[in-house]
Simulated scan of single mutants.
Amino acid sequence: MPHRYKVREIAQQAGLSEATVDRVLHRRPGVRESTVAEVNQAIADLDKQRAQLRLNGRRYLIDVVMQTPRRFSDAFRAAVEAELPAFAPAMVRARFHLWESGTTAQMVDTLARLRGSHGVVLKAQDEPEVAEAIDRLVESGIPVVTYTTDVPASARCGYVGIDNHGAGVTAAYLVEQWLGENPSGVLITLSRTVFRGEGEREVGFRSALRGSGRPVVEVSDADGIDATQERLVLDALEANPGVEAVYSVGGGNVATVAAFDTLGRKCRVFVAHDLDADNRRLLREGRISAVLHNDLRADARLALRLILQERGALPVEPARPVPIQVVTPYNLPVHY
């Protein structure tokens, strides 16, 4: 089968003879591993150059559609805007459709009204109606990448985010290490149960704590909005005086801390997600113990890249899982 580049092109790029390149391409014996590596690097460089030519002068409009607390959407918006210039010589612009609380119907309607889009980065409910709306976009030629929470039954071209089940297990491990022999119960807070990613975190957390005998108390459907969150957490703490630990899946951590303060209750360990402005401050003040964080700019870059790959503008590269970082007050990233 002929290679996508001529032997002469690869040889020029690698600075090797055509005969040597030919031997490498046909996997003939007697070629050093270092020479094989040089040929493979030359081919990768040619792929990048071809991609640059495809991108030259092209314009792409990407829609970011998210139902999420504003503190998170603000952080992700800044990450996307910071990454857009990295796709030069193409001009990539983004439109943002962001809200904190709403219905599945609102999400479906927003997706249906997108016009002129070249791709969508989506944080949405894992509901059949949302999956159908994604399928309609894909059928019309608009690729969709789900972010932080997946809709796997849809035709989305990829998912970007951490291993949510693994994050929940990690949170349980940290809680157990901090509590030790203390028999405290644990409060787990979710923004809304229809988000698959949050459900996976909860399942991982509960499964890892199953043998500990600790009671787990759940608060959900506050959408991470502080006023609602504080009221729900106050009710849960009053009803469960043995709770002295928190795993915050869905945010609203300022409100959760305030509820403990209102009751004069001590929180021995508090594990949260995402390094937004609120969590940075709470970490510095010692009000939360650790944040499970992933680099939002790396997330944004990968999501945009997957869309451009799907449109044939960039060569296909395997998507690697997003690593989880455990951030404490002593290793806060300086660039946030």
Score class of each variant (00 low, 15 high):
residue 146 T to M: 04
residue 84 L to H: 03
residue 188 I to F: 06
residue 229 Q to C: 11
residue 125 Q to E: 01
residue 295 D to Y: 10
residue 166 G to K: 11
residue 259 A to V: 08
residue 323 P to R: 13
residue 277 A to S: 15
residue 279 N to H: 14
residue 129 E to G: 07
residue 128 P to H: 01
residue 23 R to G: 11
residue 228 T to D: 13
residue 236 A to N: 07
residue 96 F to S: 08
residue 133 A to G: 12
residue 84 L to P: 05
residue 306 L to F: 08
residue 79 A to I: 03
residue 182 N to C: 01
residue 199 G to F: 10
residue 94 A to H: 04
residue 167 A to V: 11
residue 315 P to G: 11
residue 33 E to D: 15
residue 35 T to G: 08
residue 305 R to C: 04
residue 257 V to W: 05
residue 101 S to F: 02
residue 180 G to T: 06
residue 297 R to C: 03
residue 46 L to V: 07
residue 181 E to D: 15
residue 325 Q to W: 05
residue 77 R to D: 03
residue 254 V to F: 01
residue 199 G to M: 14
residue 128 P to I: 01
residue 2 P to Y: 02
residue 191 S to G: 15
residue 291 V to C: 12
residue 88 A to D: 09
residue 291 V to N: 04
residue 227 A to K: 09
residue 296 L to D: 12
residue 321 P to L: 07
residue 255 A to F: 04
residue 180 G to K: 02
residue 135 D to P: 11
residue 31 V to A: 10
residue 155 A to S: 14
residue 84 L to R: 01
residue 292 L to E: 02
residue 222 A to V: 06
residue 305 R to Q: 15
residue 102 G to P: 04
residue 126 D to F: 00
residue 222 A to N: 14
residue 125 Q to Y: 14
residue 276 D to P: 05
residue 7 V to C: 08
residue 226 D to N: 15
residue 86 A to K: 14
residue 154 S to M: 08
residue 318 P to E: 14
residue 298 A to M: 03
residue 72 F to T: 06
residue 261 D to S: 09
residue 129 E to D: 15
residue 182 N to R: 05
residue 249 V to A: 03
residue 43 I to N: 11
residue 173 Y to W: 05
residue 8 R to V: 12
residue 95 R to S: 14
residue 318 P to S: 09
residue 71 R to D: 13
residue 177 Q to M: 13
residue 137 L to G: 04
residue 34 S to A: 15
residue 284 R to L: 13
residue 201 R to C: 12
residue 256 T to N: 01
residue 29 P to Y: 11
residue 310 E to M: 02
